[in-house]
Design a protein around this nucleic acid. Structure first.
Lengths: 193, 193
DNA sequence: AAATGCATGTAACGCGTTACATGATTTT
DNA sequence: AAAATCATGTAACGCGTTACATGCATTT
C-alpha cells in the first residue's frame, strides 16, 4: 500500500460503516467529512483496486439495478487490521497554505479593495457554513443517536464550528481595518455593519 | 510562468521589500508568513531561474563575502506588474485536509487514547504559537512602526491568533469529552485541567 | 584535519486534481 | 431523439516535498 497517502484509509474507514461503492464513498465523504477532508474519483477508484489486490477490501456484488452496474466493496478482516494500525500512527499536519493570506500580506492601499471583497465573500461563506454545521448536528443527533461513533463525529463537527466562528470574527475585524483606507471604503460593495 | 503555483508570486512579493537571495527568501518566509504559508528550496531556486528568464527578476550581484557566493535577486518593473496582476485575481482556497480529524472521525473507544494524546500535544503546540504570535506582534510594532504594509502584516497575524485560540479551545473541549471514556481517562499522560 | 554551518542547486518521487472517456438509464 | 444523470474508470499534468550533491568558510 502507498506509504503516505491517507486516501486508502479514509476508504477503509467508510467501509467499516457499511459496504459501499466508490461513488457512494465520494458522496458520503463530501457530506460527512467534507469540511476537513476531500477525495476525488481519481483517487478513490485506483485506491479501491489496490486495496482489493491487497485483500483489504473485497468486491461484494455487482448489482446493475438502476443505471450502470455498481461495484460494491466491503472491508475484510485484514482491512480492519490495516485501519487499526494506521489509526495508531501519529497524524502529520501538512504545511499550511492560505492564498488569501498570502495576497493580503503583499497588499497595498491601492489593491486592498480586492482583499476586502474576498474577505467579505469569505465571511458570508463561513457564516453559511455555520448554519450547515448546525443542521448537520441536528441530523446526527436525531438519526445516529445511538451510534457509538457519534461523539467522535460531533467532535469533528465542533472543530469546524470553532474554526468558522474564528474566521468570521477575523473577517469582520479585518474588514473594519480595511475600511479605514478611503480607497477601500468607497469601492467595496459591502453589506457589513 | 506557471499557471497555478503561487510560489513565484510569493518570491516576487518578498523581493518588493528588498533584494534577496533564495536562501534569504526561505528564511524570511519561514519567520514572517510561516504560520500560513511554506516554501521549500526545491521550489524557490527553480522558480527564481524561471522568473529571471522571464525578466521578472534580475540577478543583482554575486558577492562572495563570507561563505559560498550569494546570488542576490531584485524585482524588475515587469515583475511588479506581474505581481499586481496576480494580486487582482481571486485566491482559490485549497480543499482542506486535516489528518488528525480524519483519524478522530474513525476513532473508537479502544483507540481513542491515541487521539487524546495527539490532541493534548496539539493544544500545547498551539498555545506555544500564541506566545510566538504575541512576540512577533511586539517586534513588528517596534521595528516596522512606519511601514505602510504593517496593517496587512498584522492582519495575517491576527488570523493566526484567532485560529490558534479556536484550536486550543476545541482541544480542551475534546479532551474533556474523551476523558469520559474510562479507557482514555486511565491511560492518557495528561496535564490538562 | 575534521566537523559543522552557510548557500545553492537538482533529481526523483508521489500525490491529488482536472479533464476526459465510456456506457447505461431516466427525463424531457 | 436528445439531454441529463448516475456510475465507473483512466491519463496527463503540475505541484511540492524529500533527499541528495556540491562547495566554500569557520569552528574545534
Amino acid at each position: 500500500m502507498a506509504r503516505t497517502s491517507s486516501t486508502p484509509y479514509a476508504i477503509l474507514g467508510f467501509l467499516t460503516l457499511t459496504p459501499m461503492s466508490g461513488y457512494d464513498i465520494r458522496k458520503e465523504a463530501a457530506s460527512s467529512i467534507g469540511h476537513f477532508w476531500s477525495e476525488s474519483y481519481g483517487q478513490i477508484y485506483p485506491s479501491l483496486r489496490k486495496l482489493e489486490a491487497e485483500g483489504l477490501v473485497r468486491r461484494q456484488n455487482t448489482d446493475s439495478s438502476g443505471g450502470r452496474e455498481r461495484q460494491t466493496f466491503a472491508i475484510t478482516p485484514r482491512g480492519r487490521k490495516a485501519l487499526q494500525k494506521w489509526r495508531a500512527r501519529a497524524p502529520h499536519s501538512a504545511p499550511p497554505r492560505n492564498e488569501l493570506l498570502l495576497k493580503l500580506f503583499f497588499a497595498d492601499e491601492q489593491s486592498a479593495t480586492h482583499d476586502a471583497n474576498w474577505i467579505a465573500e469569505l465571511k458570508e461563506k463561513e457564516t453559511a457554513r455555520l448554519a450547515e454545521y448546525r443542521s448537520l448536528r441536528r441530523q446526527l443527533l436525531k438519526e445516529q443517536r445511538n451510534h457509538p461513533s457519534l461523539p467522535f463525529w460531533l467532535a469533528t463537527l465542533r472543530y469546524g464550528i470553532h474554526r468558522s466562528r474564528a474566521v468570521v470574527c477575523w473577517c469582520q475585524e479585518t474588514l473594519d481595518m480595511l475600511g479605514t483606507y478611503p480607497a477601500v471604503a468607497n469601492q467595496v460593495s459591502q453589506k457589513n455593519g
